[in-house]
Design a protein around this nucleic acid. Structure first.
Length: 357
DNA sequence: TCTGGGGTCCTAGGACCC
DNA sequence: TCTGGGGTCCTAGGACCC
């Protein structure tokens, strides 16, 4: 093709900058430009809480997501620490998604602060700029936009655009930009998989993209193996789904400020968690197939045991009985720092979203 | 840096049946 | 009697992501 770009289907990955902190700053503008750390109950002197989001000013001091709040306090003693306020972030997220939908292109929501947009255009950069501008004008929040000819490329492009910029990755630039980077830079490859790949001499994205497909399948299984190679070549997902997301499970887990020790204490806590997830189940209008209980001891040993229900149900007594069966599969010999309860959900039957009489 | 919470998907292996 | 499978269901565990 000579000269101008033809119209093509482009994927846009929209990612809000420091989302939780940005929402806090929006309602407290005097915090702008400061080191702000959001997480836990906002008290950085209490243990067993971590950073959810830190502003770029806090990050410059060494604070990052997942870091214990107490460590963040040491790194940034003058930072403003705020509690995590989920309802407010959900509302802000909904505002942003509404702005994205206002363009008339399909929008696929990926959590609070991310979405994919798909559009047929000959000028993706102009649309990306328009997305950033309209989000900022209508919500006061800023975002980066990654442009790609696949979702994977768009997603990975965003990291080069942050904060607040636009970056494009496509088949023509993929190898040049990504080829010599470590495999862990790929979306979906974490430290474990990177280490396993390194054992086979696969270190860079180019190494993985040119690795032997059969060998990868033998090492990682028939789905993950070829999937890794595909990912290293930039992926192949090009569909933006507006179908509402179907939840597969509801769960709640709590790290207790002080360890639980007695069996009665533990049982009581599990049943309290079950009451909470049961409420979530009813709110979803779904039925549960399994009850799973997670235990984490003070030594960080973490295991999950599940018990299948005889039939899918919302009946609290039946769920309690299965929760106790799952819990009974543990021989708990150490203090417990975390308990969790998860309900796996049956597929929603079409047309039966509400329980009939 | 003593390590949150809410999710999803894939794989391995045992049990059981044919 | 010995041997070889395949298929399915189920649970546990691992890995990853935001």
């Amino acid at each position: 093709m000579a000269g101008e770009d033809a119209k093509a289907w482009w994927l846009f990955h929209v990612d809000l900058d420091q989302f939780l902190a940005a929402v806090e700053i929006r309602r407290r503008p005097e915090l702008a430009g400061k080191a702000v750390v959001v997480g836990g109950d906002g008290d950085p002197t209490r243990p067993r809480q971590v950073v959810a989001t830190a502003t770029y000013e806090a990050r410059a001091l060494g604070v990052h997501s997942g870091m214990p709040l107490r460590a963040a306090l040491r790194k940034a003693p003058d930072a403003v620490f705020l509690p995590s306020d989920h309802p407010t972030y959900e509302a802000a997220s909904a505002e942003v998604m509404a702005v994205l939908r206002s363009f008339g292109h399909p929008v696929e929501v990926w959590g609070w602060d991310e979405a994919f947009v798909g559009a047929e255009t000959d000028d993706p950069h102009t649309l990306a700029d328009a997305i950033r501008a309209r989000v900022r004008e209508e919500t006061g929040l800023t975002c980066a936009v990654g442009i790609g000819d696949t979702k994977e490329r768009a997603k990975m492009a965003t990291s080069f655009g942050k904060p607040g910029g636009v970056f494009r990755l496509d088949r023509d630039t993929w190898w040049q930009v990504m080829g010599e980077r470590p495999v862990a830079d790929l979306w979906g490859i974490g430290t474990k998989t990177a280490a396993r790949l390194a054992e086979h001499g696969i270190v860079t994205v180019a190494d993985l993209g040119h690795a032997d497909a059969d060998a990868l399948a033998a090492w990682f299984g028939p789905t993950i193996g070829p999937g890794l190679r595909r990912l290293a070549r930039g992926g192949a997902s090009r569909t933006v789904t507006t179908e509402p997301w179907v939840r597969r499970s509801v769960s709640k887990q709590v790290t207790y400020p002080t360890d639980l020790t007695s069996r009665e204490e533990i049982t009581t806590a599990v049943l309290a968690l079950l009451d909470d997830v049961h409420a979530l189940l009813l709110a979803e209008g779904r039925v549960a197939t399994h009850v799973a209980v997670t235990v984490r001891t003070a030594s960080f040993w973490t295991r999950t045991r599940a018990a299948k229900l005889p039939e899918p149900t919302t009946d609290l007594a039946a769920l309690r009985e299965r929760a106790e069966v799952a819990l009974a599969r543990f021989e708990i010999e150490r203090p417990v720092r975390l308990l969790g309860v998860r309900l796996d959900l049956a597929e929603p039957s079409p047309g039966a979203a509400t329980v009939a009489g």
